[in-house]
Design a protein around this nucleic acid. Structure first.
Length: 657
RNA sequence: GGGCUCAUAGCUCAGUUGGAUAGAGCAACGGAUUUCUAAUCCGUAGGUCGAAGGUUCGAAUCCUUCUGGGCCUGCCA
């Protein structure tokens, strides 16, 4: 049920004759919204105040004439004017009751399919294969998966594509590692583990050599920072009270601290590497390893037989590893073309850019210069190699040919904002202007120190170990035999609950923050049963299932409670019902800017409203059979809505916990 | 240097795109239980929405300046 549209349609009848301009009419109708203050109204129309200039009448007079013409007696029990000219609507309990009944009888819980479905490509997760997945991948995966599921449920044609990094430098590293460091036995027994070891080994040597090479640069940086302070100090002597210069001095002094810290961190990296004798030995034997890695990568890209053969041998293993993570997360994709798929198309992309006079040679590289940006988009390097911008162009062009999408979403972290702005600008210039390209950017996962989430030793946190920890924490919290129903369960059921609650906690914690902001990762908080967590909602669901089981035992199954009408008498019943009926509106709203946190907020609110109802209104021990059956219907719909909502977020439920 | 972005209660965060007295959750304090799973519910307290101007019927939200963080910035992805 789309209540908002229903109400707006009623207002349209009144407003259309008053407002000639269709754009104004549309904007005015958009000012009819759910009320923020539940005590004041269910819905409010903030339309009279902005119209006072247009119509040349005082707002209260406008509001009155609108209300006089408004025909809503079938759905509203009260329409009033308040304050500066707010029109407040209260939905009638009878109408809500009939809508609750309809929703409970509908497989889709009363949610319709959009009348004009759109084709949407959603590009998310997109890790580099052969590198272990880490925390950084969780947001893209979880947000993209949720958006896909919601859009699909609303009736759009959704095509998901996991744009795997399967063609990059990491394969150069593995190939180099395989050629120089492989352990045949281990490779035969556990290829994935061995490849991963090889990757880490080469990466380690390369990182060490890079840090070593960086030291003089960072030392120089500190030196320069000091020089800058001296310069500003001299300048300040000339103009002692110039505020700007004083500020400049402070900035310069901070610059010294930053430079020192950078140098210190880099030295520490080097020193800790130097404690690793094997690494030092290997580093001496393989000097300039990164250049050699790039050479292996280039050979692969040229199609050199040995490297291409190794790539073909490694890729399935690497993919298997990644797929096992997706299986656990219950995430699926329609396509997994990956970067390698586009490799052969890249020369044609560059040619087309030249043909349309968009590309130029600059310092030996092929560049596309764009208005408003100093730096160009580079599509081919001096050495002839292509870059990810080139691949992204080829990918978008392929998708246009193959799927003709109306919407194309890239769920990628915010640091790539400028890249996508440029990419979309180039695509538009190339003539792909019928597609709504959007960068669905998101913030960084931070540690409790407010810095990007890392382990104590400073490395990134592995995704799988994080999932394991969430599950074991969930086990501690949820399967405490003194609380809940866990005392009655065998180990297998407890394990299933821990898995469902643990993974749900990770996903929910991610989704419940506005995607654009950074958030602080706090495992303790996210597996709790109190507060805005998945476990609280899952627990509400389990209690609902418990009531429904007991009702069934009393002979009050679905067919029984559906035989009586729903009646909303208590305040908490009305509160739950109103919220239930907003499900569809909320789903649409959450897809305007692709903000899944609107869904978590809705579900949390629903669970809270239900707990309140649960506390105030006994279902099975209601005063009459009719009342009990009426409340059972409400309970049933809350349960189904919670389950559906969580399902759309990729989160499961359990029948008891 | 240029660009993007953020700053809301002690802490973690919302804020439906400019609407009424700025909301949740933790933590703190006070209540409720012969329980349909108290893993709950009800209440109290907590705010100069970073600062200062501006735009208008009305600003946490839009504009300008400032302060302080984060990120990006020519051949990594």
């Amino acid at each position: 049920m789309q209540i908002l549209q229903l109400i707006r349609d009623r207002f349209r009848v009144v407003l259309e004759p008053m407002l000639q301009d269709p754009a104004l009419l549309g904007a005015t109708l958009e000012r009819i919204v759910p009320s923020r203050e539940a005590q004041l109204a269910d819905y409010q129309a903030n339309i009279a105040m902005p119209l006072q200039k247009v119509l040349g009448k005082p707002p209260l007079e406008i509001a009155k004439s609108v209300v006089d013409g408004l025909q809503v007696s079938d759905i509203c029990s009260n329409v009033s004017i308040a304050g500066a000219g707010y029109i407040n609507l209260r939905l009638s309990p009878e109408w809500m009751a009939s809508e609750v009944m309809a929703a409970d009888r509908d497989e889709r819980l009363g949610v319709g399919r959009v009348s004009q479905p759109k084709t949407a490509i959603i590009d998310y997760s997109s890790p580099n294969v052969a590198k272990p997945m880490h925390v950084g991948h969780i947001r893209s995966t979880v947000i993209g998966d949720a958006i896909s599921k919601v859009m699909r449920f609303l009736g759009h044609r959704v095509i998901t594509d996991n744009h795997l990094g399967d063609w990059g430098t990491q394969f150069g590293m593995i190939i180099y590692g395989y050629k120089h460091f492989r352990d045949e036995g281990r490779y035969a027994a556990q290829p994935v583990a061995e490849l991963s070891r090889l990757y880490r080994k080469v990466q380690g040597i390369s990182g060490y050599q890079e840090s070593l090479g960086n030291l003089p640069k960072f030392e120089q940086g500190v030196e320069q920072a000091h020089n800058r302070v001296r310069m500003v100090e001299e300048k300040l002597q000339g103009t002692p009270n110039d505020k700007k210069v004083i500020k400049e001095l402070a900035a310069a002094q901070r610059g010294v601290e930053v430079a020192k810290e950078e140098l210190r961190a880099e030295r520490e990296k080097v020193e800790s590497a130097q404690r690793d004798e094997e690494l030092i030995r290997d580093s001496q034997a393989h000097s300039n390893i990164y250049e050699k890695v790039l050479a292996e990568t280039a050979a692969l890209h040229r199609g050199e037989e040995e490297n291409l053969g190794l790539w073909h041998a490694f890729l399935p293993n690497c993919k298997d590893e990644i797929h096992s993570v997706y299986r656990r997360l219950n995430v699926e994709f329609d396509h997994e073309y990956g970067e390698s798929f586009y490799h052969a198309m890249l020369p044609a992309v560059v040619e087309e850019l030249f043909a349309k006079s968009m590309a130029v040679n600059s310092d030996g590289a092929v560049c596309v210069f764009l208005d408003g940006f100093d730096a160009p988009m580079i599509v081919q390097k001096q050495d002839g190699a292509y870059l990810y911008a080139t691949t992204d162009l080829a990918t978008a062009m392929f998708r246009e040919r193959e799927f003709a999408p109306d919407i194309s979403l890239y769920v990628v972290d915010h640091r790539q904002g400028e890249h996508f702005t440029k990419l979309f600008a180039v695509l538009k210039k190339l003539g792909y202007d019928r597609t709504d390209f959007r960068h669905i950017s998101f913030g960084t996962v931070m540690g409790s120190d407010g810095k990007p989430f890392k382990t104590r030793s400073g490395s990134t946190v592995g995704l799988e170990s994080m999932l394991d920890e969430a599950v074991s924490r969930a086990m501690e919290v949820v399967c405490d035999p003194t609380t809940g129903a866990s005392g009655q369960m065998d180990q297998a059921e407890q394990q299933l609950i821990a898995e469902t609650v643990g993974l749900g906690a990770i996903k929910y914690a991610d989704l419940c923050h506005n995607r654009t902001s950074n958030y602080i990762f706090d495992m303790d908080k996210m597996v709790r049963l109190e507060g805005n967590t998945s476990a609280y909602i899952q627990y509400s669901y389990a209690r609902i299932k418990s009531i429904l089981r007991k009702a069934e035992e009393k002979g009050w199954g679905e067919s029984s409670f559906r035989s009586v009408p729903v009646r909303l008498t208590e305040g908490s019943e009305g509160g739950v019902s109103l919220h239930l009926l907003r499900f569809e509106d909320m789903l649409h709203q959450s897809m305007v800017d692709y903000t899944p946190n609107m869904i978590t907020e809705y579900l949390y609110e629903l669970a809270k409203l239900f707990s309140s109802f649960y506390d105030q209104c006994s279902v099975l021990n209601a005063s009459t059979r009719e009342e009990a059956l009426s409340r059972l219907q409400l309970t049933s719909l809350v349960g189904k809505t919670l389950r559906k909502g969580l399902e759309l977020l990729g989160i499961g439920v359990v029948d008891r916990m």
